[in-house]
Amino acid sequence: MSGDTILKVSDLRVEFAGRRSSTAAVRDVSFSLGTGKTLALVGESGSGKSVTSLAIMGLLPRAGRIARGTVRYRGRDREAVDLARLSEKAMRRMRGAEIAMIFQEPMSSLNPLFTIGDQIGEMLKLHGDPGPAERRKRVLEMLELVEIPAAARRIDNYPHELSGGMRQRVMIALAMICKPALLIADEPTTALDVTIQAQILDLMRRLQGELGMSILFITHDMGVVAEMADDVAVMYSGEIVEQSATRPLFARPSHPYTQGLLVSIPQPGRPEGERLVPIPGTVPPPHSMPPGCAFSPRCRYASQRCDVPVALVEARAGHMVRCIKTAEIAAHA
C-alpha cells in the first residue's frame, strides 16, 4: 500500500446466504483511493456498488458477509488496518471519526425527535466529548461551513422544519463534524432537485479541499461522475467492468456497458431529435448469471466467445476493461 493511498480494496467478494446456497453480490472487486482524491463507483441498481460501500463500513446486512479479500485502510498518521478483519468494537470507533457515510435519503436519515443541533452534537459526544458549550460552538461552526443560512437559529430546528437540500447539508455536517479522513457518499444527491444537487456537489468539493478528505462516491449518474471524480470504477452485476481515471474513461469508454451508460443520458451538442439509446434488458439476478461475461445477454457485440469468464485486463496504461472484444469495438466505434 503506497504512501498516498487511503483505501485499497483487494479481491473483495461479498456473499449473501440464501436458503440453500449463497450468492455473491460483489465479486473480485479491487480498487484503490488516493488520499484527498475522489473515486466514483458507478453502476445501476443491483450492480453491487452499495454493497461494496456497506462492506467497507462493516455494515452489511445480517445475511451478508465478506467471503474473501481485504479492505486496507490507512487514515491520517495511522498504521494500515484491514477493515474486513476488524472487530465490531474497533470498527465502531472508526465509523464517524475516521470514515463517515452519507446516504441517499436526507428525508429519513435524521431522527425526527431531536433537533439537528442535538444530532450533530451527538457525533462529538460519541467520539471524545468536548462538553456542552464547546459542542454547540463546533456544531454551529459546522452548520456555517455547510452553508446553512441563519445557522444560529437553525441549530434548534427539528428535521421536519428543513427542506430536503437543507437536510442533506445537515447530513453532511453530521458526517464531517469529526473530520473524517474518508467520506463514503452513497448517492447523496439522487433525492434532490438538480439545482440543489449542484449546490451540494459544490459544497462537497469545497469541503474536500478544505479538510483534505478522500471521497468514495457512489452514484449511477455519469454527469455527477464527470463533475466530481478523479477516478472511476464502473460496476456491473457485482464486478468492476471498467476502471480508469475520469478523463480517459469519458474520452474512450471501452466496455460496451460504459458506452451504453454514456449514450443513454442526454448531452448538449447532440443533434436535435436524436433519440437516446437505452441499454435493453436488466441486470441478471445473481442466481441466473450467464456463464461468461455478465453483460453479454444485453450486449450488442456479444458472441459465442463471450461465454467464458472474462478477466479485467489493461487495455491502455491505467485503463482496465473486462471485455474480450475491446480492440474490435474500438475499431468499430
Binding site: L59, G96, S108, S109, L110, N111, E122, M123, L126, M171
Partner: peptide, 14 residues
C-alpha cells in the same frame, strides 16, 4: 429499518 437508524450506525453509534 428506518434510514436514520442505519445512518446512526454508519456514524459510529453503539
Amino acid at each position: 429499518e428506518l434510514p436514520f437508524v442505519e445512518a446512526a450506525q454508519a456514524l459510529g453509534s453503539s
